[in-house]
Design a protein around this nucleic acid. Structure first.
Lengths: 315, 315
DNA sequence: TCAAAAGTGTTATCCTTACACCCATGT
DNA sequence: ACATGGGTGTAAGGATAACACTTTTGA
């Protein structure tokens, strides 16, 4: 009754990777040029079709990424399988086949571009997600357009639902900004027609990407922002040794919000996430800082070691 | 460079659903008979291939489930796409094609069996996951076998790693039992060869299922056990009105651990998850209880409304 | 001497946990 | 009367958030 025979129009299965890094206080994603896309959408994630020669999905993904970017992947995690929205494709002849894409999140340590791949800031694609310098100015225009969309609903009931949703995802009165809701915000902008992928003429809501790659990237950012709180995944992005200040600035870059310094240090220390090395560095300006390293043993000790973000800070 | 043309041996894509419910203090999963499987593995999840006629993955899943079980699905959420382990299948002729399966979690309110589908307790497949009556006796035999597996490694370094992993996933000294690690525990048992799916001769580690459906079910249980803590998904399993005692027993059934009554009630109340109705019921034995209903407004008010399990209780 | 970043300490507040106890019904 | 489950109050402990302050370097 299950696991049936191959159908005539078998689906296409693609693999795509959101490869993330953090260099110089800026979160990055590895992009490749994509031909044959509408204007302004010539950037995409490394991707390629699943081939019979690939032993597993993940191995297939690693092969594609290395071929397209020269980057070797370390930490890899499956995100989501997309296939629901505009992902049908006419094949040879008249048949209409599904086009699925299994998206992955990958975290890498160093950013060395290869071939024609380039590292870009996350916030090129999601400018409103960076609140490290306070509420970003581009949000004003965006909220105005969103409010317009909410008011444009014919049904007043629907209009109220839209307003509620805007408040919930973008943090209106009462509930504050939740940095994990990257995907929900993108999907709202998509539905409101404010992104080029959905027909918008300008880039108020950030730069576009090929296919639904920006949706995949949004999924990846949200997943990572959530995961750093209960798993020590930040250290996949750090060099072997680092200062607490550097660690904090990377976490701030990823989450897009500023943290309270003293509490952050205490948290990291008492969670046993890091241990001191002998060395210090004077490269950070000001008083030299002790170099730390990740304590692998914490994985055996604590149930959910991570960096519960200790609330905001002014500046 | 990405999204290439259809290859000769296109992959097979299946859809599968772990449909969960809770009736009479017992967590249930909807199963269907599967023909052509080894002895003892004739039960499986509702599943079927993705077809060109399906508008989306999720709609395809709903269609298969209704056809096979008569059950209409409400809440549905994608879990994971499996394709990595023993999931290659010889097709017609000599070609070797991938066989993927996109697994979903579904939560339904009522348990009314249809066709030859049957509701089974979760703990038929994962007896060691039910700790409501304290540490289950079957764990003794299981831990002994696991320790044997750890000791059987040729490399002493590997042996230590295995022991660490057993302690981490099954909760040895220090770190306690973590009810969310259902998948990690199943995968450990799989690697240790203690489940029929991996060649074991007996059922110490629970009843087997067809294909890798037990792995999917483990993924679903872990996801649900985690999600009830920060999203009000339990209410998808409850009738429209219920008593706080019933709600607590459902949460206990899902998580497999007992909760502290007073704290659970306070938590539910102060989170604003429920509101009182006029009615009371005397069907629970003892003093009649007030019937409550889910407060939908909480979704707009709180960032992550859920039932943070307020630690254990003796009995 | 001053700016900048590292690093230490302390206190108020809230949430979690645990314990003790009363209430209303059926047998 | 008593067993059973419903329901309320309150005190101890730990984690979080916010504050002030010292130390060490380079310009």
């Amino acid at each position: 009754m299950s696991e049936a025979e191959p159908s005539a129009a078998a689906p296409l299965v693609g693999l795509a990777a959101a490869i993330l890094a953090a260099t110089l206080d800026e979160p990055r994603v590895l992009t490749v040029p994509v031909a044959g896309q509408p204007a302004g959408r010539g950037e995409g994630l490394p991707a390629g079709p699943l081939e019979p020669a690939h032993p597993t999905l993940e191995r297939g993904l690693r092969a594609w990424v290395e071929r397209q970017t020269g980057q070797t992947l370390g930490y890899v995690e499956q995100l989501y399988t997309f296939g629901d929205r505009n992902r049908r494709k006419g094949g040879k002849g008249d048949e209409d086949r599904h086009a699925l894409s299994v998206a992955y999140l990958a975290l890498v340590r160093e950013a060395r571009p290869a071939a024609d791949a380039t590292w870009q800031s996350w916030y090129r694609y999601f400018p409103y997600e960076d609140r490290r310098a306070g509420r970003p100015p581009c949000l004003d225009a965006l909220m105005a357009r969103l409010d317009g969309w909410a008011g444009a609903a014919t049904d007043p009931e629907e209009s109220r639902r839209r307003s509620d949703r805007i408040g919930l995802t973008f943090g209106a009165a009462g509930s504050g900004w939740n940095e994990e809701r990257v995907l929900e915000r993108y999907e709202l902008l998509f539905e409101a027609g404010l992104v080029p992928e959905a027909g918008a003429a300008d880039d108020v809501a950030g730069h576009a990407m090929a296919f639904d790659h920006r949706r995949m990237l949004a999924t990846a950012l949200g997943r990572l922002r959530g995961k750093i709180k209960y798993r020590p995944v930040v250290f996949e992005l750090m060099p072997p040794t680092f200062t607490l200040g550097q660690l904090q600035r990377v976490v701030e870059a990823l989450s897009g919000v500023l943290l309270h310094k003293q509490n952050f240090r205490r948290l990291v220390a008492q969670q046993g996430l890091v241990e001191e090395t002998e060395a210090v560095t004077a490269e950070t300006g000001g008083r030299p800082a002790r170099l730390m390293r990740f304590r692998r043993e914490v994985l055996l000790e604590r149930p959910a070691p991570g960096l519960r973000l200790p609330s905001g800070r002014a500046g």
